[in-house]
Design a protein around this nucleic acid. Sequence first.
DNA 1: GTGAAAGCGCTAACAG
DNA 2: CTGTTAGCGCTTTCAC
Lengths: 334, 334
Amino acid sequence: MVKIQEVAKLAGVSLTTVSHVINHRDRVSLVLRERVERAIDELGYVPNRRAQSLRTGKTNMIALMIPDICSPYYTELVRSVQTALSDTDVDTIIYNTDVPGGHSEDHGLEYLRQVQRKGLDGLIVADAALHRIQHELLDIKVPTVFVGNLPNHAVDSIEQDGFASAHQMATYLIAKGHRRIAHVTGPSFFNMSMLRQAGFERALVDHGIGIDDSLRYEGSFLGPSGHEAVRWLLKTHADNLPSAIFFASSRMAQGGLAEFADQGVVVPRDIALASYDIYEEMRDIRPRLTTIGVEPAELGRRALALLQERMGGSYSGPPRRIVLPARLEIHETA
Amino acid sequence: MVKIQEVAKLAGVSLTTVSHVINHRDRVSLVLRERVERAIDELGYVPNRRAQSLRTGKTNMIALMIPDICSPYYTELVRSVQTALSDTDVDTIIYNTDVPGGHSEDHGLEYLRQVQRKGLDGLIVADAALHRIQHELLDIKVPTVFVGNLPNHAVDSIEQDGFASAHQMATYLIAKGHRRIAHVTGPSFFNMSMLRQAGFERALVDHGIGIDDSLRYEGSFLGPSGHEAVRWLLKTHADNLPSAIFFASSRMAQGGLAEFADQGVVVPRDIALASYDIYEEMRDIRPRLTTIGVEPAELGRRALALLQERMGGSYSGPPRRIVLPARLEIHETA
DNA sequence: GTGAAAGCGCTAACAG
DNA sequence: CTGTTAGCGCTTTCAC
């Protein structure tokens, strides 16, 4: 591994000059700069990142903390961040809190500590990765952006407008003539779930439709709970199916769709189906889902933008909060 | 950030002793060790990884290079590696060669260099991330494991038995009475594609069925090309559909399934459908795919095991090659 | 068993 | 504009 010294010797300058050429091009005369640059090329010199890092305190790495690396929603988020980062020499470390063998909470906490210990330059946390320990973010020392609803405003955050979107979807379903709509919510300990649920039910009330608790099922946001919800529905309302069902996440919707198929219930003929979340990977699901949401890629891009402003120091005020309106996509299922 | 010096002072020992307690517990007397450990706890001391890294040359990071972070196949691979690593304090950096704005080849090369520059401790490369430039692995200085078919045996590798599996699938389809089988292959520049194609066609020949070039379509392994393949098939063989179709990857199969649905062709009633690849995420696809393959999680686990042997020095012989037999899963589509 | 001292490769005052 | 110098925090001979 060729070091800065050798470059200096070959170029016939001091080691400082080489360092300056690398870090502050303008402080070096043109002649010397060219000599140094030639030497660098000739030797194929590349600065040692570890030494730089030790010296400067920067690591050129940011962490992305997500709850489930196998969910296309989160991978699209990750990809959009990596894409935006692709010519910046900043690496991303993925912390997946859903690694089996431990509660997400513990993992989340542990990762949060690692980020600080390792001196990473920044952190993006996707909501569900950190539920229940959001207060830990209150005194995090690393620039951080939270993707999702963060009531304590500990750090910058960006979120979908869960209340308005769910409200909009319910309104759409009602406009299509649905009055009895089953509702598969997310876990009640999630702010996000509660917002979506509130928006959805508010729309019902707004239209003079009462809330029927017997049509509500609390899911986990994950695929398997879509199956469970449908089995529950077919069991409890076998001879009296509602005309529509709304899933608070597309993963559950996908599971539910599969379960309906398995049980011989045809969507949308026998029951209309709608869900939250929009992302690319859904394009090959049949029948096509009618959904509402914000593309994770956009959340990722904007989260990164916020983060970079923090890291670059171009913003250092109080935590910002961005709420994005969702898009309704009408397809085959409702 | 508390440093080793402060610990030494509080414990009343030299800084060397503290370091020894951390790295070579046995070289320190019990009394001192306890004193030092108490001081460490009291101060909440945590070794600075960057300094350690600079000094030792280790980074405690490995890279995972994959062609597409949005493909469940690769994310399941990633997750299995991260899970296996979850209590080792080794981080993974994900290099995704499919970042838009550049050929995968260039990205692959660039990442390969970064791995070496950054002094990462190890590398796992998933085949498609490095097609056409596998020779670059010949003189890589970092312990590396290749997941896929690596003809030049540059490094340790682990792969599915593509020939045998495709052969087995074809044999299965033939046993079910199919004689005219459309075949959507992977790209011809991939070894893997060629192996699967060879195995498949060999089975046809073995059973006295000729190869009908007009039933073969070269795809890309990706979703969109499944759509294209089906459109091609319906156009070229509209009134004379083969009785079955085999996709060399499940992503293409999924796209194909969607396209069939869109065109009103019912699988498997109108045409049977089979594909390569097996992974968890397929569980919610309907109708359920009949497939053959090796779970990516297993490939990941075993790749990591090979890598750890290299990194730990417990193996340092010539490149090893592991070929895993695939599993046939018969479901609804064929 | 313990400690002093020499760096790992680099950056950034500070002088010149 | 350029060079000298002092570390960043840690590990590891090498003496004691």
